[in-house]
Amino acid sequence: MDIFTERQVKLKKISANKHLQNSLSIIYYLGFWSEWAKYKYLYNIYTACSLIFLLGITMASEIVYVIVNWGNLELMMAAVSMIMTNSTYAAKIIYIICHHKRIKDLIDITNTEMFNRDNNKYERIVTYYTWQGIFHHIAYQSYGGIAVTSWGCTPILYLVNKASKQLPMTGWFPYNVTSTPAFEMTCLHQFIVVFTSCINNIAIDTLVTGLIVTACCQLTILNYNISSIHCAVEKEHTILSDNFGIGTFTSEVYNKLYEDLKHCVKHSIMIFE
C-alpha cells in the first residue's frame, strides 16, 4: 500500500484542482481576475476602485508621510518598511492583471483532456494532491489571519492603557487623526485594507504553489503510467498468447505500447510547457 492509498482512507473525494479554483475565486471577488467577469467594463471599474481602496490611499499616505518627515530617520523607516511591503503586493497584483491571459492558459491546461483522462484511474493521487493544496491554503490563511488580527488590536491596547491614540500604520492624513470619529474610521479602514490584502496576497501565492502542486500531481500520474506500461504489456502478452499466438501478440501489443508511450510523451511535454 503506497502513501496515496493510505491517505485515501482519510481524505474525502474532491474535484481535481479545487485548490486552484479557491485561490482564483478570492482574486476574482477582490477585483483582479477579469476572466470570470460577465461584464468586463463594469468589472474593470471595480478593479480600479479596489486598487485605490486597497493600495492607492495607503501608499499615498505613506509616501507623503516620508516626504513630510524627511530627515527624521526613525519616522521615515517606519513608513518605508510598509511602502516596500505594499510595493511587493502591488507588483503581484499588476502581474496578475497584465498576465491574466497567460495564467488563464495555464488554468485551461489543467482542465484539458490530457490532464484529466486518468483522474478516475488515479483518483487517490488526484485527491491527495488536491487536498494538499487546500490544506496549504487554509494553513497559510490561518497564520495570516492571526497575524493581522493581533496587529489590528494595537489601537485597542493603546486605549486600554490610556496612552495616546496610535494608528496601526503610520501615514499622513489631511485631517486630525486623533479626533473622534476620524481616528476610529481610519483604524477601521486600515484594518479592512490589511486584512483584505492579506487574504488576497495569500491567494496569489497559493495560486502559484497550487500550479506547482498540480504539476507534481501530473508528474506522479505520468510516473505511474510509464511504470505500468510494462505490466500492461505482460498481462496482455499472456492473454494474447493463450488465444491468438505469438505472431498476433507482437503486432498488437507493440502497437499499444507505442500509443501508450506517445501519450506519455505528449503528457510530459504539456506538463513542462
Rank of each mutant, 00 (worst) to 15 (best):
96 I>H: 02
27 I>L: 00
49 C>S: 10
185 M>W: 11
119 N>T: 13
8 Q>D: 14
260 D>E: 12
50 S>G: 13
231 C>R: 15
22 N>C: 11
117 R>K: 15
192 I>M: 08
54 L>R: 01
23 S>R: 00
233 V>K: 09
172 W>I: 10
148 V>K: 10
34 S>K: 04
145 G>I: 10
99 H>C: 06
79 A>Y: 08
10 K>D: 06
160 V>R: 08
164 S>M: 05
10 K>P: 07
111 N>V: 03
124 R>Y: 09
25 S>M: 13
17 N>Y: 06
114 M>F: 11
150 S>C: 12
124 R>L: 02
187 C>K: 02
130 T>C: 05
238 T>G: 05
45 I>A: 12
23 S>Q: 04
125 I>M: 02
48 A>R: 07
167 L>P: 01
100 H>I: 11
39 Y>N: 14
65 Y>I: 06
156 I>N: 03
256 K>C: 14
138 I>H: 08
4 F>A: 00
222 L>G: 07
178 T>V: 15
140 Y>W: 15
118 D>V: 05
205 D>K: 08
167 L>H: 06
54 L>T: 09
43 Y>I: 02
254 Y>A: 09
30 L>S: 12
136 H>Q: 14
142 S>T: 14
26 I>Q: 01
261 L>H: 15
69 N>A: 02
24 L>G: 01
259 E>A: 15
76 M>W: 02
171 G>Y: 12
39 Y>R: 10
227 S>V: 11
194 V>L: 15
82 M>K: 05
167 L>D: 07
21 Q>S: 03
80 V>P: 02
128 Y>K: 06
8 Q>E: 15
148 V>Q: 03
25 S>C: 09
119 N>A: 12
47 T>K: 08
185 M>Q: 14
20 L>Q: 03
166 Q>P: 02
14 I>K: 06
214 T>Y: 00
55 L>G: 12
228 S>A: 12
52 I>L: 13
87 S>I: 13
145 G>Y: 11
128 Y>A: 12
141 Q>Y: 09
117 R>W: 09
73 L>M: 06
96 I>D: 03
163 A>T: 06
30 L>G: 12
202 I>H: 04
189 H>V: 15
226 I>Y: 07
155 P>S: 02
217 C>P: 07
174 P>D: 06
176 N>F: 08
211 L>Q: 00
86 N>G: 12
92 K>A: 04
131 W>K: 05
17 N>M: 04
100 H>C: 04
18 K>H: 07
81 S>H: 05
138 I>C: 13
41 Y>R: 13
70 W>H: 11
153 C>M: 13
72 N>H: 04
86 N>P: 03
27 I>Q: 01
241 S>N: 11
108 D>Y: 01
218 Q>K: 09
137 H>V: 00
90 A>R: 07
96 I>C: 02
230 H>N: 15
31 G>M: 07
33 W>E: 00
182 A>C: 14
109 I>M: 05
271 I>P: 05
23 S>E: 01
260 D>C: 10
4 F>P: 03
4 F>M: 01
259 E>M: 14
61 S>T: 12
216 C>R: 06
152 G>R: 07
240 L>C: 06
188 L>C: 14
201 N>P: 03
16 A>P: 06
254 Y>Q: 08
83 I>M: 07
232 A>I: 13
158 Y>S: 04
213 V>W: 00
159 L>A: 15
266 K>N: 11
203 A>Q: 12
2 D>Q: 03
58 T>R: 11
55 L>H: 10
33 W>S: 00
247 G>K: 13
